[in-house]
Design a protein around this nucleic acid. Structure first.
Length: 487
DNA sequence: TGAAATGTTGGGGCG
DNA sequence: ACGCCCCAACATTTC
């Protein structure tokens, strides 16, 4: 390392700020690395924005998970002789004040492509007297870089992915080049993190540890075997999380959501796994997992190019679907009391853990939008309030896909049968019994249709609606909407 | 990353 | 042995 010269010290006296947002890690963080490379002291900053914290889409589970990530980040920074500087308020006011107080000469952050964040960041840049430096860190391919030959964004996933796969992906920042650079972190006098109660959330579920180490452990375990069976494993709802915490899913989504794990690192690791796969089937499984990364990028691009999907159907043909206002049914779904065991198991897992496997998400989304004919926005909101990985773009995309209203959505007549889905993906009823204790003694032959035995176990409700009836009702409602306004 | 309805085929029971 | 029917198993179409 080159010794500092005196004039460097003078130049470098004025610090720069790294503003952490959805990149809560020190490893392979583009904006942070760039800030450190300036040679100036780097002030690591996080801002709790009440506008986000108190929005109806934000719930205690995700805030608790994020707080865990911040605590871990703060601890890491303290090991480097620094600390996370925490501020509360509107960044458009907090940042100018902080720049004034510290004499900072630059602001560094990684881009967030959501409509809210883009507007905020533009206004922040306008409000500051110093240059801002932003980076494409969150995605392997940023919005605008995977478009059709005429420049239009893709709205069909398979076409998007074909293109996405051909685009060279960035490599992780070499860790060695950074390790010494952490010496540049400014010493920060921070009172420490607010508690959940300080942030206005009284109770919260127990969340997974949100440290970078935990993310790396999950990734390593997933790569050690499950990734080679991912395409079937992700559908096994009943795998035992005590014996195998990452049975079929990677469980990395909450870590990607907050940038606790670098997407470049994960992609590079998956590419390596692909090269080491034993046979074509294993290679295909790895490709399936990589395509989930592509889905994440696809939906981020979709929200970027079509911000109106946040509140409206991507396919306007379904604008007149007569969604039912059925508060009791909605509540039964939210609380896992629909009388359909696999639906109830999944909804209770969500309430208790803040997470669900993707298969379960598809099942409960189909049930809400098709069987109950309740507006996908209700489901999207509930998911955002409970999911620790809740992300506007991915969640919205997933819900509109399930409802049939989205980009490249499944056709409206694809209606999941909650009994068959349970039998297929939880054949022994292990998943159901884990989350629905009332069904603990029901044998596998009855566990998906507990009403069929003639007497329901105490405390477990009869089906909220008969699936065969509900299916016909949904088909008629969607078909009528299409007829009123063809696609 | 559907499910149900409808169509086709072929084995086997039976008169 | 033959024709008839039933129906499981699979394929195709429809929503």
């Amino acid at each position: 390392m080159t010794p500092h010269r005196a004039d460097d010290a003078t130049i470098n006296a004025r610090p720069v700020i790294h503003w952490f947002r959805r990149d809560l890690r020190l490893t392979d963080n583009l904006a942070l690395a760039a800030a450190l490379e300036t040679g100036a002291p780097v002030i690591p900053l996080f801002i709790f924005d009440p506008a986000i914290l108190h929005s109806k889409r934000v719930g205690a589970p995700r805030v608790a998970f994020m707080r865990s990530a911040l605590a871990s980040l703060d601890a890491s920074l303290r090991r480097h002789g620094s600390a996370l500087l925490v501020r509360h308020g509107d960044p458009r006011r907090v940042l100018p004040a902080l720049v004034e107080a510290t004499g900072a000469q630059g602001l560094y952050f990684n881009r967030d492509y959501s409509p809210f964040a883009r507007r905020r960041d533009a206004e922040v840049a306008r409000a500051l007297p110093i240059p801002t430096h932003s980076f494409d860190d969150m995605l392997l391919v940023p919005p605008g870089e995977a478009t059709k030959s005429d420049g239009d964004p893709y709205t069909v996933f398979t076409a998007f992915q074909r293109k996405w796969l051909t685009i060279p992906k960035p490599c992780p920042v070499a860790p060695a080049s950074q390790s010494g650079a952490f010496d540049r972190l400014a010493s920060v006098d921070s009172p420490g993190l607010p508690t959940l109660a300080d942030l206005g959330f009284d109770t919260a579920i127990e969340t997974p540890d949100a440290s970078e180490d935990s993310a790396h452990q999950l990734l390593a375990r997933f790569l050690s075997g499950p990734i080679y069976e991912y395409d079937s494993g992700r559908n096994r709802l009943g795998a035992d999380p005590d014996r195998d915490p990452t049975p079929g899913s990677s469980f990395l989504s909450p870590y990607f959501r907050f940038g606790i794990l670098s997407i470049r690192e994960a992609y590079e690791a998956a590419q390596a796994a692909h090269g080491q796969a034993g046979d074509a089937r294993a290679r295909k499984a790895v490709e399936t997992w990589i395509s989930e990364l592509a889905w994440r990028e696809f939906y981020t691009h979709i929200l970027f190019h079509f911000p109106q999907v946040k509140t409206g159907n991507f396919r306007r043909a379904y604008d007149s679907v007569p969604w039912r206002r059925a508060p009791a049914d909605l509540q039964a779904w939210q609380e896992g009391r629909t009388g359909y065991p696999v639906v109830d198991a999944a909804m209770r897992q969500l309430a208790q853990t803040g997470w669900m496997p993707n298969r379960a998400r598809m099942i409960v989304a189909s049930f809400l939008t098709k069987d109950l004919l309740i507006d996908w926005r209700e489901g999207e909101l509930h998911f955002m309030q409970h999911l620790i990985d809740g992300d506007l773009a991915a969640n919205n995309g997933g819900w509109q896909w399930a409802a049939g209203t989205g980009t490249d959505a499944q056709p409206y007549f694809r209606i999941f049968n909650p009994i068959l889905q349970g039998q297929r993906f939880d054949p022994e009823g292990v998943y159901i019994r884990r989350w629905v204790p009332e069904l603990g003694d029901v044998p596998a032959t009855q566990v998906h249709t507990p009403w069929a035995s003639g007497h329901l176990p105490a405390g477990y409700p009869p089906p909220v609606v008969a699936h065969a009836f509900a299916r016909e009702r949904a088909l008629a409602a969607f078909a009528a909407a299409r007829e009123r306004r063809p696609a």
